[in-house]
């Protein structure tokens, strides 16, 4: 009973704040995810490119950002851009430390990390295409661009869906780490509530339940998407 009053929508309930924070979690996750898709596309293109230097750069990118803790990357981006901003601001005469916007730096950090995973997903999807199809398209005289647009892309997107869904779940969970640089998303809001009511278990459990709800619902969404994308594909019986 007490719990529902605490998390309710009454005058001293935290329900509204927690839901708003969950919205912020979804927002920062979406921005980070989209950035990750862009980085992933660039990474995959670089890994498949003819130029050794591009392939090598992409290899370093995926190795480093998949091998280093996400928290460390968030610190790098937050403090890195903050000290950049601070030095620019001091050139214009401002005093002291200027913090970078937590939303942008957090989303960017998540984008860079998830982009490394996304690169691997896209590579796998492109490599899943039967070689014969590409040879056939070439034999018909398609240019590389046309071949990519008509043959590779539509099928690779289909193959990539399960991997992309995994990365989305990863991004959602990683977004909790942005709380350490002060963005008021679900995790930070739970900390605030826990601090001011001295009921940490209730708040963190509620946050966990909301995360679970978001991952569960988006999991169903991706399953439906996969089913739809695969509707024209014959499966081996």
């Amino acid at each position: 009973m007490q719990y529902f009053q605490l998390m309710g929508f009454g005058p001293d309930g935290w329900g509204r704040d927690m839901l708003a924070a969950a919205g912020m979690t979804i927002g920062v996750s979406i921005v980070g995810f989209v950035a990750g898709v862009l980085f992933g596309c660039c990474g995959a293109a670089a890994k498949l490119s003819r130029f050794g230097s591009l392939r090598w750069t992409a290899e370093v990118y995926t190795t480093v950002f998949r091998g280093v803790p996400d928290l460390l990357v968030i610190y790098l981006f937050y403090f890195g851009s903050s000290s950049l901003i601070t030095s620019v601001a001091s050139m214009f005469g401002a005093q002291g430390f200027v913090g970078a916007p937590a939303f942008l730096t957090g989303a960017l950090a998540i984008g860079v990390v998830s982009g490394a995973y996304q690169t691997q997903v896209f590579i796998g999807a492109v490599e899943a295409l039967p070689r014969g199809e590409i040879e056939a398209a070439r034999a018909y005289g398609m240019s590389s661009f046309l071949l990519f647009r008509r043959v590779v892309l539509p099928q690779a997107i289909r193959f990539a869906i399960p991997g992309v869904a995994n990365v989305w779940q990863l991004v959602l969970k990683e977004s909790a780490l942005i709380s350490v640089v002060g963005l008021i998303e679900l995790m930070r809001q739970a900390q605030i509530g826990a601090g001011s009511t001295r009921q940490p278990f209730s708040f963190f459990l509620t946050a966990a339940a909301l995360y679970l709800l978001i991952t569960f619902v988006s999991g169903i969404g991706f399953q439906a998407l996969e089913k739809r994308a695969m509707r024209g594909v014959r499966r081996p019986a």
Binding site: L177, S179, P200, F201, A208, Y211, T215
Partner: peptide, 23 residues
């Protein structure tokens, strides 16, 4: 498995470290 894979590790750590003191 569903509950632990669907929530961030950070939440799990906070529940154990901060949360349990509520009882």
């Amino acid at each position: 498995i569903f509950a632990f894979r669907g929530t961030p590790v950070l939440v799990q750590i906070y529940i154990v470290y901060y949360g349990l003191s509520q009882f």
